[in-house]
């Protein structure tokens, strides 16, 4: 096969790169989309919640890090660090909602949005102040030498990103579709006052939504930290891209966020290769896609509701 004059092993390599990038976007996009589904508002501090959780995981990991204790130990503390990162992000997400968004729930829609942007700036600057602005290396918990598949290579970390992404997304889908809490969540997203009348604790559901979305972002944060290091602005661009992914897939729609993330990851990789877009303009691909989607199909690829709710 020799599509667009690119050898097949190279295409496969781009596919692997694009899918891992996409899986990361999807994981982060879930947080945006869940919050939007319930509160009809974009949590622009999401990327910084990711960053904060990653730092928590990073410091926990390095507090216990000791290569002399063997591979099993390292993987053990890495998993523990992942859990710590999830917990830290979840708590932060819930607290931010209580402090910065809840008081504004009945305010005009612009107010919580501005509050979110404010929170995001505060978090990024606090991180710069406390943790310093230098990139910190998050050592792989395993030997990350690449493996050869058909002339392309895939690293254990890429496999882990794909696997963890898949498990998390499947888990979330099952939770939302099959459990009572998930049902309550869906009900809240459809009609808050009526859900409250049915005996659903709306505040609890909203907190839960923030907790789950933030925890998923922390997972994504730790996974990208392994590849791209930890630094205070690590959540900003990733968050923005994930937001686009959520819009592309249809914001408020969980499957849409997953699909949007993967599509965006693949577009960014193949757009450069096949369309010959200069690599320096890679980020413009995502934003162009956003504009196109907003023009042609404003409610996203997987349309959730055709009519705007009144």
């Amino acid at each position: 096969m020799n599509l667009f004059n690119i050898p097949s092993n190279e295409l496969l390599q781009h596919l692997i790169n694009g899918l891992t990038l996409g899986a990361i976007y999807s994981l982060i996009a879930l947080g945006y989309t869940m919050v939007y589904g319930i509160l009809k508002f974009i949590n622009f501090a999401h990327g910084e919640i990711l960053m904060a959780g990653t730092y928590a995981g990073y410091y926990f990991y390095y507090f216990l890090y000791d290569p002399s204790k063997g591979a099993a130990y390292t993987i053990g503390i890495f998993i523990a660090a992942l859990v710590i990162a999830m917990i830290a992000s979840a708590i932060l997400g819930v607290v931010i909602e209580k402090v910065a968004y809840k008081p504004l729930r009945k305010a005009p829609r612009l107010a919580p949005l501005l509050s979110a942007i404010g929170v995001s700036i505060i978090l990024a600057n606090l991180a710069a102040l406390f943790f310093g602005t230098k990139s910190k290396k998050f050592e792989y918990p395993f030997n990350n030498s690449s493996m050869d598949i058909g002339g392309s290579s895939i690293t254990p970390n890429q496999l882990m990103i794909l696997a963890v992404g898949l498990i998390m997304m499947a888990g979330l889908k099952l939770f939302v579709d099959r459990t009572r809490l998930g049902k309550a969540m869906r009900a809240t997203s459809q009609n808050q006052p009526v859900a409250a009348l049915m005996g659903i604790n709306v505040n609890l559901i909203i907190s839960l939504t923030f907790a789950i979305g933030s925890a998923l972002a922390a997972v994504a944060g730790v996974l990208i930290a392994l590849e791209y290091k930890v630094y205070p602005t690590m959540g900003t661009m990733a968050g923005l891209k994930a937001f686009i992914a959520a819009v592309v897939g249809g914001i408020g729609n969980i499957s849409g966020a997953m699909l949007g993330g993967i599509i965006l990851g693949l577009l960014e990789t193949f757009g450069v290769v096949i369309l010959g877009i200069p690599q320096g303009l890679k980020d413009t691909i995502a934003f162009s896609v956003l504009i196109l989607i907003l023009l042609l199909r404003p409610s996203g690829i997987l349309m959730k509701n055709i009519r705007e709710k009144v």
Binding site: I6, P7, E10, Q13, H14, N17, L21, E227, Y228, K229, T269, V272, V273, Q279, K282
Partner: peptide, 13 residues
């Protein structure tokens, strides 16, 4: 930029 995989894949090619 933190990700250079696309460029490096092309270079490898």
């Amino acid at each position: 930029d933190k990700d250079f995989k696309t460029q490096l894949t092309k270079i490898k090619g």
